[in-house]
Amino acid sequence: MIAFLRRLGPGPALGAMLLGAFVLVALVGPLVAPYSPTLQSLDHLLESPSRAHWLGTDENGCDVLSEMLHGARLAAWISLLVTTISLLVGIAFGTVAGYFGGLLDDAMMRVVDILLAFPGILLNLAIVALVPRPGAGHLVFALAVNGWVGYARVARGEVLRLREREFVQAARAIGASPWRVMARHVAPNILTPLVVQATFGFAGVILVEASLSFLGIGRMASYSWGSMLAQGTTYLWRTQHLALAPGLCIAAVVLGCNLLGDGLRDHLDPRRVRR
């Protein structure tokens, strides 16, 4: 693992470290948080960082550090779920379309075109906003509804490339059913570019989720990073520390994904090296 990161270069290694730190915080953060994220202490409102509150307190007297640590788990869960669901649906859809080709492919790709013609964030926003009491499930659903489309396109392109290769034909020749060929022989071989894309996709989900919480739509907890950023910016004229923590953390995770994604893509595509 370390040797692999070294081969990728300093940028991607930094990206991997940022993402690793994020995963670590998401795993252990809530366990080591000094306070409950919803514990309000009304005689400590909007305090600057201190011994007792390392990142200060917000307008309700909640400990910002504890909120950030719990928020990390929330952000990680949502992004992981959305990315995984989108990836699986995208692979299945793209593989079937590319493998069978013909009219089915045409029809399936029109569905992709229509979803691509829809400005993503508006669709997410409309779905979450119209649900009476949105929960985490609705948010994941709304983000995955059009999240899979990009993966499906890449998967289809890869399948078209693989479809006529010898090992696929061999599998067909010995009588494997189309579904078996797709699941056992085609899909595993198209994963690499999709994983690279998922790295960028993960960052996208973090940003869109934060935007939705920022707009006050689909916020499930006061300690989601997007909601904290929204609260922080409301008080920006009085104190900067509230917006700083969530802003920096969102930026760091997104930067990590971009650095790692760039590195993986360059690593897999020799033509792009040293660009």
Binding site: A210, S211, F214, L229, T233, L236, A251
Partner: peptide, 18 residues
């Protein structure tokens, strides 16, 4: 450009305002 891609716009906007 990396900073521009990673910066959440809803953080950048309020910072610009301040």
């Amino acid at each position: 450009s990396l900073a521009g891609i990673s910066m959440p716009s809803m953080w950048l906007g309020p910072l610009l305002l301040v």
